[in-house]
Simulated assay, not measured.
Amino acid sequence: MTSKSATESPRSGRLTWFVPTGLILLSIVPMVAGAIRLTELAGGAAITPENARFFAAPLPVVLHIIAVGLYSVLGAFQFAPRFRRRRPGWHRAAGRLLVACGLVAALTGLWMTLFYPRPVGDGDLLAGFRLVFGTAMFVSIVLGLAAIRRRDIARHRAWMIRGYAIGLGAGTQVLTNLPWFLFFGTPGEFPRALLMAAGWLINLAVAERAIRRQR
């Protein structure tokens, strides 16, 4: 009898890594920006109006950058079904770290929205969006954790996908903001808020479609 693994085509193997690879690529620009910010803080870069808030209270932004980076990369591998099935121990261990990183990313994002001075271009509407989606990310991860403790795998998967979609919003926001920058220049407060919200909403729409297809 031929085993399932023996009958799987090379094309099937490549498709297994299509989604994780795309998710990691989507995360590259925010991770590079985060690495530059960490380098500035560690190297004692010149303090400017744009980065002064980070030097005044560096811990939240450092934790946020590290947590988001780990969350984005590790989370992408959870979308490789064959890899997940073959290494259930890795899936559980990575899942625990993902929960911790996701919660830290959400909480530090909320803290920075509430307590950091706002940079030029960030208004009340964008701050409100950040509070809504940051809270939604935190709640999604908590509900996903509660679901797996009840052994409700379907709900666990759904809530964790939603939390990951929100956490990956910065990557999609690069794509939603780029056309505006190219054609109109730097957006004002209102269009910037809408472009940022569009990144989160697009990710959530894709997440809901993926959840429904799994069901």
Rank of each mutant, 00 (worst) to 15 (best):
S3Y: 03
T7R: 10
E8W: 00
S9N: 02
R11A: 06
G13Y: 00
R14D: 00
W17T: 00
W17C: 00
W17K: 00
V19L: 03
T21N: 04
G22M: 14
S27C: 07
I28H: 05
M31G: 04
A35T: 13
I36Y: 12
I36E: 14
R37E: 09
T39L: 15
I47V: 15
P49M: 01
A52M: 11
R53W: 05
F54M: 09
F55W: 07
A57L: 06
P58H: 01
L59W: 03
P60V: 01
I65W: 10
I65P: 03
I66L: 13
V68M: 12
V68F: 03
Y71G: 05
A76P: 02
A76M: 05
A76V: 09
F79D: 02
A80D: 00
R82E: 05
R82L: 12
F83S: 07
P88F: 15
H91A: 04
R92V: 02
A93F: 09
A93V: 10
G95T: 11
R96D: 03
L97D: 00
L98K: 02
G102W: 07
L103P: 00
V104N: 08
A105V: 06
A106I: 07
L107V: 11
G109M: 14
L110T: 04
L110G: 06
W111P: 01
M112F: 07
T113R: 06
Y116E: 13
Y116W: 13
R118P: 02
V120Y: 08
G123D: 07
L125E: 13
L126W: 10
G128T: 13
G134D: 03
G134S: 08
F138S: 07
I141W: 12
G144F: 09
G144Y: 07
A146P: 00
A146F: 06
R149G: 00
R149Y: 01
R151L: 10
R151G: 04
D152R: 05
R155V: 03
H156V: 08
H156W: 12
H156I: 10
I161R: 13
R162K: 10
I166T: 05
G167N: 12
L168G: 01
G169N: 02
N177R: 15
N177E: 04
P179W: 11
W180L: 12
F181R: 15
L182I: 07
F183V: 09
F184I: 05
G188K: 13
F190T: 13
F190C: 10
F190E: 15
L195W: 05
L195V: 12
M196D: 11
W200L: 06
N203L: 04
L204V: 05
V206G: 01
A207C: 08
I211N: 03
R212M: 08
R213E: 09
R213W: 11
Q214W: 13
R215A: 10
